[in-house]
Design a protein around this nucleic acid. Structure first.
Lengths: 160, 160
DNA sequence: GGGGTTCAGTTCCAAATTAGAACCTTGACA
DNA sequence: TGTCAAGGTTCTAATTTGGAACTGAACCCC
């Protein structure tokens, strides 16, 4: 299967992956949440090849995750900002950071701490259930076909 | 920067991305959470080239996300199962699915529904604060350097 | 008005990765 | 003996990436 055929897949993960499932894209988005917005800044912080950066930013804009905003008119210069759709990726990034913190941290401890301004504490992200508010554990989740499901979305026989 | 230099980065996202920041890897993990475990099953469901699948499974095992378990002895056959480390990626996948559901769903609605067996409701995943239990919004999070932070982990000047 | 700088890209080539298909191995089964 | 299944490996061609240099518009300074 080709990479660019992914957005035609029915699965939400496949569609999401068609936008963000790339080494650099996730790192670019991490920086976006740190309020990095300009081409040169991304390039310097990431050490990414310039034309790959240009390509990824173009794709993210096309996907509606970032918008290209002119911040100066002569010479015309643009910066990249998260859209609502982009900001909605925050839980994905937070979960990823937390997993990295728990499982891949070096011996010096975690590189960044997250502070919740609402309750004024450093915190860890927890995945909760929208209905009961409890933490969602993988073993407490059952998946079933939804209205947009094709016949083969779930594996035929589930080995228990 | 080279892809395989990423795991030496200090950032937890970079380290996490060095393991899962790949088009196929995320789709393989999605299937793992759907209890797909065998080479042929992954290959058929994903349409992935066989030797790339072999490569990705090998890398996931090496990273400690999957384990290769013999399930039959003659001929010897192996399957791949999520480890604790792999299961801990559940929030990442759930967040990703939810984002896909909200922003990339087709006109027929979401492909799969998630059911929380503990409270017996279909639910959406919500990112909550480990300290106060409230939902964490992107704007309520401040990032600051942690004990393992190098000098340049955060952008120098934050444009407000 | 010549020279240097900044930012946001583009262009070029070589190197690495991926897709697609065929092939291999072990053993079961008929 | 021949076929089948599972879990891979090997091969070649096409695509993507890395690295580095170049462009272009407008500023700033002398």
């Amino acid at each position: 299967m080709r990479w660019n055929a992914l957005d035609k897949e029915t699965c939400s993960v496949a569609r999401a992956v068609s936008v963000i499932g790339d080494r650099w894209t996730l790192l670019i988005l991490r920086d976006c949440f740190l309020r990095v917005r300009r081409f040169e800044a991304f390039q310097e912080r990431l050490g990414i090849t310039r034309h790959i950066l240009a390509d990824r930013l173009r794709k993210l804009v096309k996907a509606g995750v970032l918008e290209r905003v002119q911040y100066q008119s002569s010479p015309r210069r643009f910066e990249y900002r998260l859209t609502r759709k982009g900001i909605d990726l925050h839980p994905v990034l937070m979960s990823l950071v937390h997993w990295g913190d728990v499982h891949m941290a070096g011996n010096k401890g975690r590189p960044v701490l997250h502070h919740h301004t609402k309750c004024d504490h450093d915190f860890d992200p927890v995945l909760a259930c929208s209905k009961c508010g409890d933490e969602v554990k993988a073993k407490d989740v059952r998946v079933r076909p939804g209205p947009g499901a094709p016949a083969d979305i779930l594996p035929k026989e589930i080995v228990p």
